[in-house]
Design a protein around this nucleic acid. Structure first.
Lengths: 340, 340
DNA sequence: TTGTATGCGTTATCAA
DNA sequence: TTGATAACGCATACAA
């Protein structure tokens, strides 16, 4: 089914069909109804090959905003973004990247405003606040669809979320702890930020699993490092001092290497094992040193890659492949961490 | 850079540039040299968007042959193949699938001959024999590129291999055994087929790892089930009878559920744990029953998907993204096995 | 040996 | 309100 065929069947020209398809107005209601009905009946969808050629002419820009500047996890995300950009050069696509530092909603709004003037779609690692939610809805009204990246945005009309399933990440981490400790451990938890949805869900998943499946794992201590590597060392030292029986540490967010350093400095290397998320270089180094045996990963490279592709699919066809593109949680040990 | 621009710069027509690009001959050597030089200098590559439109007109067929009919692992591979086919319908692509049973080189040659008459590219799960190797080379001479799937084909001009890194799969499995057994085990091995490269490499990887990193894991027994679920039960029973000290079983190829059944019937459920590859349904069932804790997976769905895409990329642009597309080995427990 | 015309499917522009 | 036409980049049939 092509526009041409639809046009012939309806006894109109391609231009008229095009006006109906893209809601440009200026079509007699009768004609429009006929065309819509024919389209419905024959199941017309835009052809990617043809569409690609015209999209190319418009040389669309995809804007990307994230709040992880300086964060090695986001270095991988950006590598995926760049890979997607390279693959899309033939389609005339350019990626414009804004890397912010820290979670400042106002700064994010400013970045959105800057990009909104000229991008065809937005990839956003969002701060989950009402101002941002409203802005994303307005963007869509202006014809700019938003894909959320790594973390979702509630109560708004983003077209797609690309990221991981944090709750399952938590259960997977807990199950691995259960296996590696043979079901018996004195566990101390270094939590993340309570207002960051992903951190909370991870912890929830882990606690749910432990309650249901690991009666022999006892939680002896808990502290938060606020997703801040700078805070992690001190908090972990306190934790280890206050709970000397600790033999297992579960790190929910950033600061894994710092927690490991605290374990080393506390002279507990052979006693306490660390379980954590993401294979960032400093964590891998601790894996080499034997402090961390297993990490749970959420495929940062693919997150960046798929988010840009989803944005492009939306430009190309009006919608992404799915409303949620979820990365599987990967269990990694030194043997299946592949260097790029 | 487009053909048009190249043509203008060289003072010739688009047709002439096209003849040079596609080696159709009938071009004066001087003109050809000039054009080739200009292309080289300006780094021309065919545009995907334009190419897609003409490829569509030729409605190419991609042939797929595998020898895993009835094998649940290949059911996932085929699901990936179908997914790729769906995504490529807009490009006019059809997939023609031949599912064979067992490793019969002659049957594979027949299937290749049938497809060779009308396909534009071939995806082949090959039997690694000289006859097949020679046939693949001749296919390329006829203009039909071959992508090998799941298992590679040596000494031939296949354009791309899509599959897993079996050696690393073996080291990963061994490392997981080491972690889960805390470095102490009496291990019995149920090997695969020695002439199947992947099985041999897996075992090699595992043995290398154990020798270097796991002095406390002692190999007490070894048998082969020939990648045949029908044989696995009996072989495993013998193994368990002959080596009653066995507390860990490592299954290299097919027959995981049958080995588990042997463990059950031998009354050794709480004593012996099973480590294996691939999350096929019968294995997952044994995970639910607690006999298998961890499996190493090689992403069958993605293998099928990526193989078809690689074949299409070759049709579209003359070559795939890379000469080897390697799936990562995934460590899976019940918590991160996602049902589709 | 080379150039020109036509078509693929979609969209923008201009004329009616 | 609608139709005709040109354009994107590539490929090919045909004319020169």
């Amino acid at each position: 089914m092509t526009i041409k065929e639809i046009a012939k069947l309806c006894g109109v020209s391609r231009g008229t069909v095009d006006r109906v398809l893209n809601n440009r107005g200026k079509v007699k209601p009768d004609t429009e109804a006929l065309i819509l009905q024919t389209i419905e009946r024959l199941g017309y969808t835009k052809n990617i090959a043809g569409r690609a050629l015209t999209v190319r002419r418009s040389a669309p820009t995809i804007g990307v905003i994230h709040s992880g500047r300086g964060n090695p996890f986001f270095a991988d995300v950006v590598a995926g973004i760049r890979q997607a950009e390279r693959e899309l050069t033939d389609y005339g696509v350019t990626v414009e990247l804004r890397e912010l530092e820290g979670y400042d909603a106002q700064a994010q709004l400013t970045a959105i405003d800057e990009l909104a003037s000229h991008v065809s779609a937005l990839v956003l690692h969002p701060i989950n606040e009402p101002d941002i939610q409203g802005r994303v809805d307005r963007l869509l009204d202006e014809g700019i669809p938003t894909v959320t990246l790594n973390s979702d945005l509630e109560h708004c009309k983003r077209v797609c979320y690309v990221g991981s399933d944090y709750y399952t990440g938590g259960t997977t981490a807990a199950a691995i702890m259960n296996i590696c400790t043979r079901g018996a451990a004195k566990l101390s938890v270094v939590a993340g930020v309570d207002t960051v949805l992903g951190h909370r869900q991870r912890l929830l998943g882990a606690l749910d699993y432990l309650r249901e499946h690991a009666p022999g794992i006892q939680i002896v201590g808990r502290v938060s490092a606020q997703d801040d590597a700078g805070l992690a060392y001190g908090r972990a030292r306190e934790l280890l001092d206050q709970h000397p029986e600790t033999d297992t540490v579960f790190v929910v967010a950033a600061g894994v290497a710092e927690v490991c350093r605290a374990v080393i400095d506390a002279g507990r290397v052979r006693q306490a094992r660390v379980f954590a998320f993401d294979n960032v270089p400093s964590t891998v180094e601790m894996m080499r040193r034997g402090l961390v045996e297993v990490v749970i990963c959420q495929q940062p490279f693919r997150q960046g890659y798929e988010a840009v592709r989803a944005a492009f699919d939306t430009i190309l066809l009006g919608q992404p492949k799915g409303e949620r593109i979820i990365m599987e949680n990967q269990i990694r040990i030194l043997q299946n961490i592949y260097e790029k």
